[in-house]
Write a protein that binds this DNA or RNA. Sequence first.
DNA 1: TATCCTACTGATAGTCTCTCTCACTTAACT
DNA 2: AGTTAAGTGAGAGAGACTATCAGTAGGATA
Lengths: 197, 197
Amino acid sequence: MSDLSGLRERKKARTHEAIQEAALRLFRTQGYEATTVEQIAEAAEVSPSTFFRYFPTKEDVVIHDALDPLLFASFAEQPAQLSPIQALRASMAAVFGALSPDQLALEFERQDLIVGVPELRARMLDDLATTFRGFAEALAARVGRPADDLAVRAFAGAVLGAGIAVWLTASQGEEVSVFMKEFDAAMAYLDDSGLRL
Amino acid sequence: MSDLSGLRERKKARTHEAIQEAALRLFRTQGYEATTVEQIAEAAEVSPSTFFRYFPTKEDVVIHDALDPLLFASFAEQPAQLSPIQALRASMAAVFGALSPDQLALEFERQDLIVGVPELRARMLDDLATTFRGFAEALAARVGRPADDLAVRAFAGAVLGAGIAVWLTASQGEEVSVFMKEFDAAMAYLDDSGLRL
DNA sequence: TATCCTACTGATAGTCTCTCTCACTTAACT
DNA sequence: AGTTAAGTGAGAGAGACTATCAGTAGGATA
Protein backbone atom coordinates (compact mmCIF):
# COMPACT_ATOMS: atom_id res chain seq x y z
CA MET A 1 0.00 0.00 0.00
CA SER A 2 1.93 2.97 1.32
CA ASP A 3 5.60 2.52 0.72
CA LEU A 4 6.79 5.73 2.32
CA SER A 5 10.13 4.99 0.61
CA GLY A 6 10.89 7.22 -2.31
CA LEU A 7 10.23 10.89 -2.76
CA ARG A 8 7.19 10.12 -4.86
CA GLU A 9 5.29 8.32 -2.11
CA ARG A 10 6.16 10.91 0.49
CA LYS A 11 5.00 13.68 -1.80
CA LYS A 12 1.75 11.85 -2.39
CA ALA A 13 1.13 11.41 1.31
CA ARG A 14 1.87 15.08 1.88
CA THR A 15 -0.54 16.15 -0.87
CA HIS A 16 -3.24 13.89 0.55
CA GLU A 17 -2.78 15.42 3.96
CA ALA A 18 -2.63 18.97 2.62
CA ILE A 19 -5.92 18.56 0.79
CA GLN A 20 -7.62 17.05 3.81
CA GLU A 21 -6.38 19.71 6.16
CA ALA A 22 -7.31 22.55 3.84
CA ALA A 23 -10.74 21.05 3.29
CA LEU A 24 -11.55 20.52 6.96
CA ARG A 25 -10.32 23.98 7.82
CA LEU A 26 -12.52 25.54 5.16
CA PHE A 27 -15.50 23.40 6.18
CA ARG A 28 -15.09 24.55 9.73
CA THR A 29 -14.93 28.23 8.88
CA GLN A 30 -17.30 28.45 5.90
CA GLY A 31 -19.45 25.36 6.22
CA TYR A 32 -19.47 22.28 4.04
CA GLU A 33 -21.82 23.33 1.26
CA ALA A 34 -20.44 26.84 1.04
CA THR A 35 -16.99 25.45 0.33
CA THR A 36 -16.25 24.49 -3.27
CA VAL A 37 -13.76 21.94 -4.43
CA GLU A 38 -12.06 24.71 -6.34
CA GLN A 39 -11.45 26.60 -3.09
CA ILE A 40 -10.07 23.51 -1.42
CA ALA A 41 -7.78 22.86 -4.36
CA GLU A 42 -6.55 26.43 -4.31
CA ALA A 43 -5.95 26.36 -0.55
CA ALA A 44 -4.03 23.11 -0.89
CA GLU A 45 -2.15 24.48 -3.91
CA VAL A 46 -3.20 21.78 -6.31
CA SER A 47 -5.52 21.75 -9.31
CA PRO A 48 -9.17 20.65 -9.00
CA SER A 49 -8.26 17.64 -11.14
CA THR A 50 -5.79 16.59 -8.53
CA PHE A 51 -8.37 16.89 -5.77
CA PHE A 52 -10.53 14.28 -7.47
CA ARG A 53 -7.51 12.11 -8.06
CA TYR A 54 -7.01 11.88 -4.30
CA PHE A 55 -10.65 11.85 -3.20
CA PRO A 56 -13.30 10.34 -5.47
CA THR A 57 -15.92 12.72 -4.11
CA LYS A 58 -16.03 15.81 -1.94
CA GLU A 59 -17.69 13.71 0.74
CA ASP A 60 -14.77 11.35 1.00
CA VAL A 61 -12.55 14.01 2.52
CA VAL A 62 -14.67 13.84 5.64
CA ILE A 63 -16.05 10.32 5.60
CA HIS A 64 -12.97 8.15 5.83
CA ASP A 65 -12.98 6.55 9.27
CA ALA A 66 -9.63 5.48 10.68
CA LEU A 67 -11.16 4.08 13.86
CA ASP A 68 -13.28 1.42 12.23
CA PRO A 69 -10.50 -1.09 11.54
CA LEU A 70 -9.10 -0.50 15.04
CA LEU A 71 -12.47 -1.35 16.53
CA PHE A 72 -12.74 -4.53 14.52
CA ALA A 73 -9.25 -5.60 15.52
CA SER A 74 -9.91 -4.88 19.17
CA PHE A 75 -13.23 -6.70 19.06
CA ALA A 76 -11.59 -9.81 17.65
CA GLU A 77 -9.03 -9.77 20.45
CA GLN A 78 -11.51 -9.64 23.32
CA PRO A 79 -11.51 -12.75 25.53
CA ALA A 80 -13.98 -15.41 24.49
CA GLN A 81 -15.80 -15.53 27.80
CA LEU A 82 -17.17 -12.03 27.29
CA SER A 83 -20.62 -11.78 25.75
CA PRO A 84 -20.67 -10.08 22.34
CA ILE A 85 -22.02 -6.89 23.84
CA GLN A 86 -19.47 -6.93 26.66
CA ALA A 87 -16.75 -7.46 24.06
CA LEU A 88 -18.03 -4.49 22.05
CA ARG A 89 -18.10 -2.26 25.12
CA ALA A 90 -14.58 -3.29 25.99
CA SER A 91 -13.26 -2.55 22.50
CA MET A 92 -14.95 0.82 22.37
CA ALA A 93 -13.37 1.72 25.68
CA ALA A 94 -9.99 0.44 24.54
CA VAL A 95 -9.92 2.25 21.18
CA PHE A 96 -11.26 5.57 22.40
CA GLY A 97 -9.19 5.35 25.55
CA ALA A 98 -6.04 5.10 23.46
CA LEU A 99 -6.75 8.38 21.70
CA SER A 100 -5.00 11.57 22.71
CA PRO A 101 -7.20 14.51 23.73
CA ASP A 102 -6.36 16.16 20.41
CA GLN A 103 -7.31 13.11 18.41
CA LEU A 104 -10.50 12.76 20.41
CA ALA A 105 -11.43 16.38 19.84
CA LEU A 106 -10.75 16.07 16.12
CA GLU A 107 -12.82 12.90 15.93
CA PHE A 108 -15.78 14.51 17.62
CA GLU A 109 -15.53 17.57 15.43
CA ARG A 110 -15.67 15.25 12.46
CA GLN A 111 -18.72 13.52 13.94
CA ASP A 112 -20.50 16.82 14.43
CA LEU A 113 -19.79 17.79 10.84
CA ILE A 114 -21.19 14.49 9.61
CA VAL A 115 -24.29 14.61 11.78
CA GLY A 116 -24.99 18.17 10.76
CA VAL A 117 -24.68 17.83 6.97
CA PRO A 118 -27.41 15.66 5.41
CA GLU A 119 -25.23 14.69 2.50
CA LEU A 120 -22.48 13.42 4.78
CA ARG A 121 -24.86 11.83 7.25
CA ALA A 122 -26.53 9.82 4.50
CA ARG A 123 -23.20 8.71 3.13
CA MET A 124 -21.99 7.72 6.59
CA LEU A 125 -25.11 5.68 7.26
CA ASP A 126 -24.64 3.88 3.98
CA ASP A 127 -21.07 3.10 4.89
CA LEU A 128 -22.37 1.71 8.16
CA ALA A 129 -24.26 -0.86 6.11
CA THR A 130 -20.86 -2.21 5.15
CA THR A 131 -19.69 -1.98 8.73
CA PHE A 132 -22.78 -3.96 9.67
CA ARG A 133 -21.74 -6.84 7.40
CA GLY A 134 -18.30 -6.91 8.97
CA PHE A 135 -19.79 -6.84 12.42
CA ALA A 136 -22.16 -9.68 11.57
CA GLU A 137 -19.20 -11.74 10.37
CA ALA A 138 -17.19 -11.01 13.51
CA LEU A 139 -20.16 -11.99 15.63
CA ALA A 140 -20.73 -15.14 13.62
CA ALA A 141 -17.12 -16.12 14.10
CA ARG A 142 -17.40 -15.44 17.81
CA VAL A 143 -20.44 -17.63 18.40
CA GLY A 144 -19.68 -20.21 15.71
CA ARG A 145 -22.68 -19.66 13.52
CA PRO A 146 -23.02 -18.69 9.85
CA ALA A 147 -23.01 -14.96 9.16
CA ASP A 148 -26.24 -15.15 7.21
CA ASP A 149 -28.05 -16.71 10.17
CA LEU A 150 -31.16 -14.65 10.81
CA ALA A 151 -30.50 -14.31 14.54
CA VAL A 152 -26.94 -13.16 13.87
CA ARG A 153 -28.14 -10.53 11.41
CA ALA A 154 -30.95 -9.38 13.67
CA PHE A 155 -28.66 -9.19 16.69
CA ALA A 156 -25.98 -7.29 14.79
CA GLY A 157 -28.59 -4.93 13.40
CA ALA A 158 -30.13 -4.35 16.80
CA VAL A 159 -26.81 -3.56 18.48
CA LEU A 160 -25.60 -1.32 15.66
CA GLY A 161 -29.03 0.29 15.40
CA ALA A 162 -29.09 1.17 19.06
CA GLY A 163 -25.59 2.59 18.74
CA ILE A 164 -26.51 4.73 15.74
CA ALA A 165 -29.68 5.91 17.45
CA VAL A 166 -27.64 7.13 20.41
CA TRP A 167 -25.08 8.65 18.07
CA LEU A 168 -27.68 10.60 16.12
CA THR A 169 -29.47 11.89 19.19
CA ALA A 170 -26.56 12.50 21.54
CA SER A 171 -23.58 13.84 19.66
CA GLN A 172 -25.20 17.05 18.44
CA GLY A 173 -22.88 19.65 19.85
CA GLU A 174 -22.82 17.94 23.20
CA GLU A 175 -19.85 17.44 25.43
CA VAL A 176 -17.20 15.21 23.99
CA SER A 177 -17.80 12.31 26.31
CA VAL A 178 -21.61 12.32 26.35
CA PHE A 179 -21.85 10.05 23.35
CA MET A 180 -19.39 7.59 24.85
CA LYS A 181 -21.27 7.38 28.11
CA GLU A 182 -24.68 7.07 26.50
CA PHE A 183 -23.41 4.50 24.03
CA ASP A 184 -22.07 2.38 26.85
CA ALA A 185 -25.27 2.78 28.84
CA ALA A 186 -27.37 1.81 25.83
CA MET A 187 -25.29 -1.32 25.35
CA ALA A 188 -25.62 -2.15 29.02
CA TYR A 189 -29.36 -1.72 28.68
CA LEU A 190 -29.51 -4.16 25.76
CA ASP A 191 -27.39 -6.64 27.65
CA ASP A 192 -29.41 -6.35 30.85
CA SER A 193 -32.72 -6.60 29.06
CA GLY A 194 -31.70 -10.07 28.02
CA LEU A 195 -30.76 -9.62 24.38
CA ARG A 196 -28.51 -12.54 23.55
CA LEU A 197 -27.14 -14.32 20.56
CA MET B 1 -53.09 19.63 1.71
CA SER B 2 -54.47 18.07 -1.47
CA ASP B 3 -57.84 19.57 -2.25
CA LEU B 4 -58.62 17.52 -5.32
CA SER B 5 -61.35 20.09 -5.98
CA GLY B 6 -60.62 22.47 -8.79
CA LEU B 7 -59.00 21.82 -12.12
CA ARG B 8 -55.72 23.16 -10.87
CA GLU B 9 -55.27 20.57 -8.16
CA ARG B 10 -56.27 17.70 -10.38
CA LYS B 11 -53.85 18.81 -13.06
CA LYS B 12 -51.09 19.05 -10.49
CA ALA B 13 -51.78 15.57 -9.20
CA ARG B 14 -51.76 14.24 -12.75
CA THR B 15 -48.46 15.89 -13.56
CA HIS B 16 -46.93 14.56 -10.35
CA GLU B 17 -48.06 11.08 -11.26
CA ALA B 18 -46.94 11.39 -14.87
CA ILE B 19 -43.42 12.39 -13.86
CA GLN B 20 -43.16 9.61 -11.30
CA GLU B 21 -44.41 6.97 -13.73
CA ALA B 22 -42.14 8.12 -16.53
CA ALA B 23 -39.18 8.20 -14.18
CA LEU B 24 -39.73 4.74 -12.72
CA ARG B 25 -40.28 3.28 -16.17
CA LEU B 26 -37.05 4.79 -17.45
CA PHE B 27 -35.14 3.72 -14.34
CA ARG B 28 -36.38 0.18 -14.83
CA THR B 29 -35.35 0.00 -18.47
CA GLN B 30 -32.17 2.13 -18.49
CA GLY B 31 -31.06 2.15 -14.90
CA TYR B 32 -31.09 5.04 -12.46
CA GLU B 33 -27.82 6.74 -13.25
CA ALA B 34 -28.17 6.30 -16.98
CA THR B 35 -31.44 8.22 -16.92
CA THR B 36 -31.21 12.01 -16.93
CA VAL B 37 -33.77 14.40 -15.57
CA GLU B 38 -34.05 15.82 -19.06
CA GLN B 39 -35.17 12.44 -20.38
CA ILE B 40 -37.72 12.07 -17.60
CA ALA B 41 -39.06 15.54 -18.26
CA GLU B 42 -39.35 14.82 -21.96
CA ALA B 43 -41.11 11.51 -21.36
CA ALA B 44 -43.54 13.18 -18.98
CA GLU B 45 -43.98 16.07 -21.42
CA VAL B 46 -42.89 18.78 -19.04
CA SER B 47 -39.83 21.00 -18.86
CA PRO B 48 -36.86 20.14 -16.66
CA SER B 49 -37.74 23.18 -14.57
CA THR B 50 -41.11 21.63 -13.84
CA PHE B 51 -39.51 18.36 -12.80
CA PHE B 52 -37.61 20.10 -10.04
CA ARG B 53 -40.74 21.99 -9.06
CA TYR B 54 -42.43 18.68 -8.27
CA PHE B 55 -39.43 16.80 -6.92
CA PRO B 56 -36.67 18.69 -5.13
CA THR B 57 -34.10 16.14 -6.27
CA LYS B 58 -33.91 13.25 -8.71
CA GLU B 59 -33.76 10.92 -5.70
CA ASP B 60 -37.11 12.05 -4.40
CA VAL B 61 -38.99 10.47 -7.27
CA VAL B 62 -38.07 7.09 -5.83
CA ILE B 63 -37.67 7.80 -2.15
CA HIS B 64 -41.09 9.04 -1.11
CA ASP B 65 -42.66 6.32 1.02
CA ALA B 66 -46.45 6.23 1.13
CA LEU B 67 -46.51 3.33 3.58
CA ASP B 68 -44.69 5.08 6.38
CA PRO B 69 -47.64 7.16 7.64
CA LEU B 70 -49.92 4.14 7.33
CA LEU B 71 -47.58 2.15 9.52
CA PHE B 72 -47.47 4.87 12.13
CA ALA B 73 -51.25 5.16 12.16
CA SER B 74 -51.68 1.42 12.44
CA PHE B 75 -49.09 1.22 15.20
CA ALA B 76 -50.90 3.83 17.23
CA GLU B 77 -54.15 1.91 16.92
CA GLN B 78 -52.84 -1.41 18.20
CA PRO B 79 -54.38 -2.54 21.51
CA ALA B 80 -52.45 -1.44 24.57
CA GLN B 81 -51.96 -4.92 25.96
CA LEU B 82 -49.63 -5.83 23.08
CA SER B 83 -45.93 -5.36 23.70
CA PRO B 84 -44.29 -2.74 21.45
CA ILE B 85 -42.77 -5.40 19.24
CA GLN B 86 -46.03 -7.31 19.01
CA ALA B 87 -47.76 -4.08 18.07
CA LEU B 88 -45.18 -3.42 15.37
CA ARG B 89 -45.56 -6.93 13.95
CA ALA B 90 -49.32 -6.52 13.90
CA SER B 91 -49.17 -3.18 12.09
CA MET B 92 -46.71 -4.49 9.50
CA ALA B 93 -49.03 -7.40 8.81
CA ALA B 94 -52.05 -5.11 8.64
CA VAL B 95 -50.52 -2.54 6.29
CA PHE B 96 -48.85 -4.96 3.91
CA GLY B 97 -51.85 -7.29 4.06
CA ALA B 98 -54.08 -4.50 2.82
CA LEU B 99 -51.98 -3.99 -0.32
CA SER B 100 -53.09 -5.42 -3.64
CA PRO B 101 -50.67 -7.78 -5.41
CA ASP B 102 -49.89 -5.00 -7.87
CA GLN B 103 -49.16 -2.51 -5.14
CA LEU B 104 -47.03 -5.06 -3.36
CA ALA B 105 -45.07 -5.84 -6.51
CA LEU B 106 -44.50 -2.14 -7.16
CA GLU B 107 -43.39 -1.57 -3.59
CA PHE B 108 -40.84 -4.35 -3.77
CA GLU B 109 -39.57 -3.17 -7.12
CA ARG B 110 -39.05 0.21 -5.49
CA GLN B 111 -37.20 -1.45 -2.62
CA ASP B 112 -34.90 -3.30 -5.00
CA LEU B 113 -34.12 -0.09 -6.82
CA ILE B 114 -33.27 1.65 -3.57
CA VAL B 115 -31.12 -1.17 -2.24
CA GLY B 116 -29.25 -1.42 -5.53
CA VAL B 117 -28.37 2.25 -6.06
CA PRO B 118 -25.93 3.62 -3.46
CA GLU B 119 -27.20 7.17 -3.86
CA LEU B 120 -30.78 6.09 -3.13
CA ARG B 121 -29.80 3.68 -0.40
CA ALA B 122 -27.90 6.36 1.46
CA ARG B 123 -30.76 8.80 1.13
CA MET B 124 -33.27 6.19 2.33
CA LEU B 125 -31.16 5.37 5.38
CA ASP B 126 -30.96 9.04 6.23
CA ASP B 127 -34.71 9.36 5.95
CA LEU B 128 -34.98 6.41 8.32
CA ALA B 129 -33.26 8.58 10.89
CA THR B 130 -36.38 10.74 10.82
CA THR B 131 -38.57 7.66 10.94
CA PHE B 132 -36.59 6.62 13.97
CA ARG B 133 -37.52 9.80 15.81
CA GLY B 134 -41.18 9.26 15.04
CA PHE B 135 -40.96 5.68 16.17
CA ALA B 136 -39.26 6.68 19.40
CA GLU B 137 -42.06 9.15 20.07
CA ALA B 138 -44.74 6.57 19.36
CA LEU B 139 -43.00 4.14 21.69
CA ALA B 140 -42.64 6.76 24.36
CA ALA B 141 -46.33 7.54 24.17
CA ARG B 142 -47.14 3.87 24.39
CA VAL B 143 -45.15 3.19 27.54
CA GLY B 144 -45.61 6.61 29.11
CA ARG B 145 -42.01 7.70 29.16
CA PRO B 146 -40.22 10.70 27.65
CA ALA B 147 -39.04 10.24 24.07
CA ASP B 148 -35.51 11.25 24.92
CA ASP B 149 -35.25 8.54 27.56
CA LEU B 150 -32.11 6.55 26.82
CA ALA B 151 -33.86 3.19 27.03
CA VAL B 152 -36.57 4.37 24.66
CA ARG B 153 -33.99 5.56 22.15
CA ALA B 154 -31.91 2.42 22.46
CA PHE B 155 -34.94 0.18 22.14
CA ALA B 156 -36.25 2.06 19.12
CA GLY B 157 -32.81 1.97 17.52
CA ALA B 158 -32.41 -1.72 18.19
CA VAL B 159 -35.77 -2.65 16.70
CA LEU B 160 -35.36 -0.41 13.68
CA GLY B 161 -31.74 -1.51 13.26
CA ALA B 162 -32.69 -5.17 13.22
CA GLY B 163 -35.38 -4.39 10.66
CA ILE B 164 -32.98 -2.50 8.41
CA ALA B 165 -30.40 -5.23 8.72
CA VAL B 166 -32.91 -7.78 7.52
CA TRP B 167 -34.04 -5.44 4.79
CA LEU B 168 -30.53 -4.86 3.48
CA THR B 169 -29.61 -8.52 3.48
CA ALA B 170 -32.89 -10.11 2.42
CA SER B 171 -34.61 -8.00 -0.17
CA GLN B 172 -31.96 -8.23 -2.87
CA GLY B 173 -33.89 -9.70 -5.74
CA GLU B 174 -35.48 -12.28 -3.50
CA GLU B 175 -39.05 -13.44 -3.55
CA VAL B 176 -41.54 -10.77 -2.66
CA SER B 177 -42.52 -12.24 0.67
CA VAL B 178 -39.07 -13.25 1.93
CA PHE B 179 -38.41 -9.86 3.48
CA MET B 180 -41.79 -9.89 5.24
CA LYS B 181 -41.21 -13.32 6.71
CA GLU B 182 -37.66 -12.60 7.79
CA PHE B 183 -38.64 -9.26 9.25
CA ASP B 184 -41.34 -10.88 11.33
CA ALA B 185 -39.01 -13.66 12.41
CA ALA B 186 -36.35 -11.14 13.41
CA MET B 187 -38.87 -9.22 15.50
CA ALA B 188 -40.01 -12.45 17.11
CA TYR B 189 -36.39 -13.23 17.90
CA LEU B 190 -35.90 -9.87 19.60
CA ASP B 191 -39.09 -10.34 21.58
CA ASP B 192 -38.24 -13.89 22.60
CA SER B 193 -34.70 -13.01 23.59
CA GLY B 194 -36.18 -10.75 26.23
CA LEU B 195 -35.69 -7.31 24.77
CA ARG B 196 -38.21 -5.13 26.55
CA LEU B 197 -38.93 -1.52 27.13
C1' DT C 1 26.02 11.53 -16.04
C1' DA C 2 22.82 10.96 -19.80
C1' DT C 3 18.52 8.78 -21.11
C1' DC C 4 14.62 6.58 -21.14
C1' DC C 5 10.15 5.27 -18.83
C1' DT C 6 6.48 5.82 -15.91
C1' DA C 7 3.80 8.53 -12.44
C1' DC C 8 1.67 12.49 -11.43
C1' DT C 9 -0.05 16.84 -12.61
C1' DG C 10 -2.67 20.79 -14.77
C1' DA C 11 -5.51 22.58 -18.33
C1' DT C 12 -9.49 22.18 -20.97
C1' DA C 13 -13.88 20.90 -22.35
C1' DG C 14 -17.94 18.73 -21.33
C1' DT C 15 -22.06 16.36 -18.73
C1' DC C 16 -25.50 16.48 -15.33
C1' DT C 17 -27.99 17.98 -11.17
C1' DC C 18 -29.95 21.79 -9.27
C1' DT C 19 -30.99 27.10 -8.62
C1' DC C 20 -32.73 31.42 -9.97
C1' DT C 21 -35.03 34.79 -12.68
C1' DC C 22 -38.37 36.36 -15.91
C1' DA C 23 -41.97 36.42 -19.05
C1' DC C 24 -46.16 33.94 -20.42
C1' DT C 25 -50.28 31.42 -19.81
C1' DT C 26 -54.31 29.80 -17.44
C1' DA C 27 -57.28 28.75 -13.51
C1' DA C 28 -59.99 30.97 -9.89
C1' DC C 29 -62.32 34.74 -7.73
C1' DT C 30 -65.08 39.23 -7.73
C1' DA D 1 -65.11 40.73 -18.01
C1' DG D 2 -61.20 42.04 -15.24
C1' DT D 3 -57.96 40.96 -11.71
C1' DT D 4 -55.09 38.12 -9.09
C1' DA D 5 -52.38 34.26 -8.15
C1' DA D 6 -50.47 30.00 -9.52
C1' DG D 7 -48.11 26.99 -12.73
C1' DT D 8 -45.08 26.68 -16.66
C1' DG D 9 -41.11 27.06 -19.91
C1' DA D 10 -36.91 29.19 -21.33
C1' DG D 11 -32.47 30.58 -20.32
C1' DA D 12 -28.39 31.52 -17.71
C1' DG D 13 -25.40 29.80 -14.44
C1' DA D 14 -23.13 27.42 -10.35
C1' DG D 15 -20.85 23.38 -8.87
C1' DA D 16 -19.60 18.32 -8.66
C1' DC D 17 -17.55 15.16 -11.40
C1' DT D 18 -15.44 12.80 -15.87
C1' DA D 19 -12.40 12.26 -19.79
C1' DT D 20 -8.57 13.54 -22.50
C1' DC D 21 -4.17 15.09 -23.45
C1' DA D 22 0.13 17.34 -23.16
C1' DG D 23 3.84 18.54 -19.99
C1' DT D 24 6.90 17.35 -16.20
C1' DA D 25 9.34 15.28 -12.55
C1' DG D 26 10.89 10.98 -10.09
C1' DG D 27 13.19 6.66 -10.63
C1' DA D 28 15.48 3.10 -13.00
C1' DT D 29 19.12 1.81 -16.33
C1' DA D 30 23.27 2.17 -19.21
